[in-house]
Amino acid sequence: MEKFILALTVLTLAAGCALAAPRDTALVAVFSKTGEQYNVGVIQEGNTMIVAKMIAAAIGADLFEIRPAKAYPESYDETTDVAKKELRAGARPELAEDKDIGAYDTVFLGYPIWWGEMPMAVFTFLESHDWKGKTVIPFATHEGSGMGRTQESLRKTLPDATILSGLAVRGAVAQNERAQAQQAVTEWLAKLGL
Rank of each mutant, 00 (worst) to 15 (best):
T157V: 08
G166K: 08
P119H: 11
D100L: 07
M147E: 12
G133C: 10
K191C: 03
W188L: 06
G148N: 11
Q183S: 13
Y72M: 10
V122R: 08
A168T: 01
A61S: 14
I163V: 12
A89V: 04
M147F: 10
K99G: 04
G133M: 06
K84C: 05
L6N: 06
Y72S: 09
D77S: 07
F64E: 00
R170L: 10
A20R: 12
R88G: 09
A58S: 15
A168P: 07
D81R: 15
T48L: 02
P93N: 07
W131T: 06
L167V: 05
Q180G: 00
V82P: 11
V42T: 15
V42S: 14
D160W: 01
I113N: 14
V122I: 03
E97F: 03
A58D: 14
A184G: 00
G146W: 03
M120I: 03
A161P: 09
R67T: 10
V28L: 03
C17P: 00
V28Q: 08
A161D: 08
K3L: 12
E2P: 00
L126S: 09
A26S: 14
T135C: 08
S32R: 07
P138Y: 07
A26P: 00
S128W: 01
L109V: 05
D160I: 00
I113G: 03
P68G: 15
A174I: 03
E86I: 06
L11G: 14
T34R: 13
T150I: 05
M118H: 13
E94L: 08
